[in-house]
């Protein structure tokens, strides 16, 4: 790999200072996306700020209302957490589908959200549950956090500290994985709570994760797979690549959404 400066701050304030000082600084969390991106020269930061020694950014807290997960919490911890499994089983299920065991041992929830890969799993959970993303500067609702392909509302020196997921009445996540990369060709997260129904789609949109309002309205009246049977998502603005056409992905959204509703608990 090419050369960069490596920094390992002990707290968030120090990390922010280092990021401000750098010309093109990047935060290293689990590195499961950043390091491959750097090898491919898709990212070429002059400074890497490794957060692994910053205390207080890892761990899971659950109450009857919300599950709050520290940014550096690894996928394996979320999938294995008895509290997550009890409060939001769909979220534990989602974490268990990310990458493979070795990737889940390193990859973090904060890294996944900050990267906002259009085929990543966690953005679907954040948008599909109406999560709140807490940074060193502010609290951002998921609806205002994701800004398109690999883009978020985060400023260059802003660091995610934790993510809070409201506990829904029920939720489900179904994913059609690309068999090689295990990223979502299409993944749909649905949730039902007193604030309404949310349907969030990852893997399909050219602009990253998005909600399907028509399905939400139908499911609010009748939370069943049958209620969304007739709803077709237009192929416009869907990703088209060697793995699937835009039409195929649009069709899969309907299939995955119905399965997610049927599996919701």
């Amino acid at each position: 790999m090419y050369a960069f400066t490596y920094e390992r701050p002990k707290n968030v304030d120090e990390a922010v200072k280092l990021l401000k000082k750098a010309k093109d600084g990047k935060i290293l969390a689990g590195g499961q996306t950043l390091l491959p991106a750097m090898k491919l020269r898709l990212a070429s930061p002059d400074t890497i700020v490794d957060l692994s020694r910053v205390k207080g950014l890892s761990g899971i807290k659950a109450s009857s209302k919300a599950v709050t997960i520290g940014a550096l919490t690894k996928h394996i911890e979320v999938m294995g957490s008895a509290e997550v499994q009890k409060s939001i089983p769909a979220l534990a299920h989602l974490a268990s589908l990310i990458g493979d065991p070795a990737v889940r041992n390193r990859g973090t929830i904060g890294g996944s959200l900050a990267n906002n890969d259009p085929s990543a799993d966690y953005p679907a959970a954040a948008l599909g549950l109406g999560a709140t993303i807490k940074t060193n500067k502010r609290e951002l609702p998921a609806d205002k956090f994701f800004k398109g392909l690999f883009e978020t509302a985060l400023a260059g020196d802003e660091i995610i500290e934790s993510v809070s997921f409201p506990v829904p009445e029920k939720a489900g996540y179904e994913k059609f994985p690309n068999p090689a990369s295990r990223f979502a060709l299409v993944g749909v997260f649905v949730s039902k709570s007193k604030d309404g129904v949310r349907v969030a789609v990852t893997g399909a949109g050219e602009g990253g994760v998005f909600r399907v309002k028509e399905m939400e309205t139908a499911l609010a009246k009748d939370f069943s797979a049958k209620a969304i049977e007739g709803i077709k998502v237009p192929a416009k603005n869907m990703i088209a690549d060697i793995h699937g056409t835009a039409e195929y992905r649009a069709h899969l959204i309907g299939v995955m959404a119905r399965r997610a509703v049927a599996a919701a608990k």
Partner: peptide, 22 residues
């Protein structure tokens, strides 16, 4: 590219892909 797993080692008891860790 962290797909094949030929580089798996254990770091503090957990399997990781050593090509995708500094």
């Amino acid at each position: 590219t962290s797909q094949c797993g030929a580089c798996v080692v254990h770091v503090d008891g957990a399997a990781v892909k050593s090509c995708t860790m500094l």
